[in-house]
Amino acid sequence: MSTPTTAAVPTKWWSGGKSPFNVEYGKLMMWYFLMSDTFTFGALLIAYGTIRFSSNSWPNPNEVFQSYPGMSEGTSAPLVFVSIMTFILIISSVTMVLAVRAGQEMKKNKVVFNLILTILGGLAFLSCQAWEWTHLHHEGAWWGSNPFLNEDGTQSSTNFTNFFFTITGFHGFHVFSGVIINIIMLIMTLNNVFEKRGHYLMIEKAGLYWHFVDLVWVFVFTCFYLI
């Protein structure tokens, strides 16, 4: 390390006086917050995996999650309902991207339209989850009670439902707070806050959070419903 006469660096991103990543601090914090939240969810999912790996057998998700609202008796439709939920979340992520894009182009009406769609998508997802939870609860599943047998017909511990409700609940809580954030963004947009500020950076941060919620669902969906 020497006294610096190292002036001839092409882009001096790191030389101080500017953000080395060309992003404002808020976005940087949002990214790192999401990274730490990844570890929260990661830890929960890995805990689930650890318990599953230390059990001799585990319930088959296809036998558990096989209903949808208004289903006729005696039929079973594994994976159908959850695919709809997944799709809702992906589409709401797409509308969020459109809202962010519209914000970058300073088109207020387009931002409002897409934000409303995103909020509706979030609410739809939450409703689906509420229905699924109620349905499972009526089947006798809850924290500390598991009516389902293991795949090989042996008695299952309660940890299948324990983890299911804890992790989807924690994810649902994130969706819920995401919806709240989006509603706040909508109100702020309608009040011309961002127009006056001259940029819609706040929406970008809200967007990052919303996509993260979608991202987590990709993992939850795979870990609980598919494998």
Partner: peptide
């Protein structure tokens, strides 16, 4: 965020 983003000019 502060250490990365807010260093003064010349503070690499």
């Amino acid at each position: 965020a502060t250490v990365l983003n807010m260093r003064t000019k010349g503070m690499s």
